[in-house]
C-alpha cells in the first residue's frame, strides 16, 4: 500500500511496513529466456497470428490508432509484453486472457512472425500509420527529445533505447508505432497505472516529460518521423 505525505517541500513516497516486494515483471533477460524468445517458427506463428489480425491488422499494422502496430517489432519486446500480460503485471482486458491461452512455444512463434513483417507502406491495407504530420514547432520539440533528450532534466534521448540509433534488450522499437498508442502508454507510465518497466525507466522518464512533450512525441512517432534517426537528413 502506498500513502503520500508532504514534507520539506517535497512529496515523500511511503511504503507501509508490511509491504511485500513490488515486482514490476517476472521477466529477466537471462540467456535461457533470450534463447527461448528467439527460437520461434515464423510460419507457425503466421497461422497462430490469424486471430490477432482483427485488432493488430493482417500485416501487423492496426486499423485503430490506439492499438499497437506489431510489424517489424523486436522479438524480445513482444515476448516480454505477452509474458507480462500472462502474469498480469501489465493490465489489459483483451490481452490478458489471450496471452494466458498461449503456450510458451506459441508465444515464441507469434513473436517471430511479427518481427519478420516489413514496415514499408502498403496502399491495400487499412492501416492508420503513418498519421497526420505534426505542426513544425511541435515536431521540433519532439525531434530534440528523440535525438538529444534533455540533459538538464536528466531525460535521455528516446532513440538511444527505442531505435533506430540503439536498442536496449527488450525495449520496443517506436519507428512504426501508432501515435495514440504511444501517448496512452506515456500517460499510463506517468500516472504509474502501467508499471511493468524493469527498474522504472519509463515511469521515471514519462513523469519527467510535460504533457505537451508527451503529446508531441506521440505525434512525432505516429507520423512516421521515427523511421529515420532524427537529424539524419539535412532537410529536417
Amino acid at each position: 500500500m502506498l500513502t503520500v505525505m508532504v514534507a520539506a517541500g517535497s512529496l515523500i513516497l511511503v511504503a507501509s511496513d508490511a509491504a511485500p516486494d513490488r515486482i514490476p515483471s517476472f521477466v529477466t533477460w537471462s540467456a535461457e529466456n533470450i534463447a527461448a524468445a528467439s527460437s520461434g517458427d515464423a510460419f507457425r506463428g503466421s497461422l497462430l497470428a490469424k486471430r490477432c489480425d482483427h485488432c493488430h491488422g493482417a500485416e501487423g499494422f492496426s486499423p485503430v490508432a490506439s492499438t499497437p502496430n506489431l510489424a517489424g517489432m523486436n522479438m524480445l519486446s513482444i515476448w516480454k509484453q505477452l509474458e507480462d500480460f500472462r502474469s498480469h503485471k501489465r493490465r489489459s482486458r483483451p490481452m490478458e486472457p489471450i496471452a494466458e491461452s498461449l503456450t510458451p512455444r506459441d508465444v515464441a512463434d507469434v513473436v517471430s512472425y511479427y518481427a519478420e513483417l516489413p514496415v514499408f507502406p502498403d496502399p491495400q491495407d487499412n492501416r492508420v500509420f503513418p498519421g497526420m504530420q505534426p505542426e513544425a514547432g511541435r515536431a521540433a520539440v519532439a525531434a530534440r527529445l528523440v535525438t538529444f533528450g534533455d540533459g538538464e532534466r536528466g531525460i535521455p534521448p528516446c532513440q538511444s533505447c527505442h531505435g533506430p540509433v540503439a536498442y536496449r534488450v527488450g525495449v520496443p522499437s517506436l519507428m512504426a508505432q501508432n501515435g495514440d498508442y504511444v501517448l496512452n502508454q506515456l500517460e499510463m507510465f506517468a500516472s504509474r497505472s502501467r508499471f511493468n518497466d524493469i527498474n522504472l525507466p519509463m515511469r521515471t522518464i514519462a513523469a519527467l516529460l510535460s504533457e505537451d512533450e508527451r503529446r508531441a512525441l506521440a505525434e512525432y512517432y505516429g507520423a512516421g518521423l521515427g523511421l529515420q534517426p532524427a537529424g539524419s537528413s539535412g532537410s529536417k
Partner: peptide, 28 residues
C-alpha cells in the same frame, strides 16, 4: 552508451529537522 551525456539526476539535501522521520520499511 548512446544516451550517456543525459544520464543525470539529483541529490536534494534538506536541513536535518525538515527531513521526515521515516519508520521502518518506509523509503524517502
Amino acid at each position: 552508451g548512446a544516451g550517456h551525456y543525459a544520464m543525470r539526476s539529483e541529490f536534494k539535501v534538506v536541513p536535518r529537522d525538515q527531513f521526515p522521520a521515516l519508520r521502518a520499511g518506509e523509503r524517502g
